[in-house]
């Protein structure tokens, strides 16, 4: 996803958009190939994330469209005060590009985990929150986000994210993205768990249970109408996210379902409200927290039961 992001970003620079990338000294390897050709569009501000947000605010005030790049915890948690006062309240079109969603950097330890960011960024007035499920969604959302006139948080995985969509992703910013459209049950996910959810859907299909799959790539504004439409035709819904079960995607869906008197069954899967005491790689963590295709599929089955 990181490579896709940079590829798409510099394509947009080539098209003449006034983009400027600020990085807090991260991107070695993925950003390095662009440093010479795009020197005028990249600034390494040093390991100084709070300053990076302020710089972006100042640049946006003069007409630039700055992108701030770092790992989620340093980009969003360390700088929250700057984000709310300097970007969100004045509605400046700055994009925060956070890499390492969820437990992408599992073995790096809790300082590098990002399981609270959806809750925090969704609660910020004027902020758009995007969480693409695969590289093609990332590319499409990035392009569409340039029409926004407000700050935006782009929540990315790491670098080995699997493609789900084949050639073009049917992505509309602000709308629930449909990946599989048949069945009386639905899985709604966000971010890079999409491939695992697709495996669950495939396993269910092989067992004769058609199941829908949606990518909630836009977490704010949240597509309430889209969720209501799913609820109207599905008797079971499972949400799957690599985020604290508190105030993430599942909570957003719960609010919509409850307010619309959903009569079906709903379960949210995610990361329990804890900082990990054991460490492992991303896939180990996903299995550890039972965000695996088997568990997702059996959860759907249990609701249909």
């Amino acid at each position: 996803m990181r490579s896709t992001f940079f590829q798409s970003f510099f394509r947009l620079v080539d098209e003449g958009h006034p983009l400027h990338l600020l990085t807090a000294d991260l991107g070695f390897g993925v950003l390095t190939p662009y440093l010479d050709k795009y020197a005028g569009h990249i600034t390494n501000v040093g390991v100084a994330e709070s300053n990076m947000i302020g710089l972006a605010a100042g640049m946006a005030m003069r007409g630039f469209r700055p992108f701030c790049y770092s790992m989620v915890p340093f980009l969003v948690f360390r700088t929250l005060d700057q984000i709310r006062s300097d970007l969100c309240a004045p509605r400046l079109p700055v994009t925060l590009v956070g890499v390492g969603s969820g437990l992408s950097y599992g073995m790096e330890g809790m300082t590098h985990h990002a399981i609270e960011d959806i809750a925090i960024t969704r609660a910020l007035p004027n902020m758009t929150v995007l969480s693409p499920g695969d590289p093609l969604e990332c590319e499409a959302l990035l392009r569409q986000s340039l029409n926004l006139l407000n700050p935006c948080y782009l929540r990315l995985g790491s670098n080995n994210d699997i493609r789900v969509h084949i050639e073009t992703a049917p992505v509309v910013l602000g709308k629930l993205g449909c990946v599989r459209e048949n069945g009386e049950a639905a899985i709604i996910t966000t971010g890079t768990l999409l491939p695992r959810c697709l495996k669950a859907v495939q396993a269910l299909a092989e067992a004769g249970i058609p199941c829908r799959l949606y990518s909630a790539h836009t977490l704010k504004p949240f597509d309430e109408v889209g969720v209501v439409a799913v609820a109207a035709t599905c008797k079971a819904i499972v949400s799957v996210e690599e985020h604290n079960v508190i105030n993430g995607l599942g909570t957003a869906i719960t609010e919509v379902l409850f307010q619309h008197h959903y009569a079906g069954r709903f379960i949210k899967l995610g990361i329990p409200d804890e900082y990990a005491s054991q460490l492992g790689g991303r896939d180990w963590f996903r299995d550890h927290y039972r965000l695996d295709p088997d568990t997702i599929a059996s959860t759907v089955r249990s609701l249909l039961g």
């Binding site: 302020g54 605010a57 100042g58 640049m59 700057q82 006062s85 300097d86």
Partner: peptide, 30 residues
């Protein structure tokens, strides 16, 4: 020119304005 009140925010924003002005070959000062 900015939301002011949380200390330590002004200089980063001002530096961003000055940096942008430099890139735009503007002689505006901050």
């Amino acid at each position: 020119e900015a939301n002011m009140g949380s200390l330590g925010h002004g200089l980063p924003i001002a530096a961003g304005l000055a940096f942008a002005a430099r890139k735009q070959k503007s002689d505006a000062r901050v």
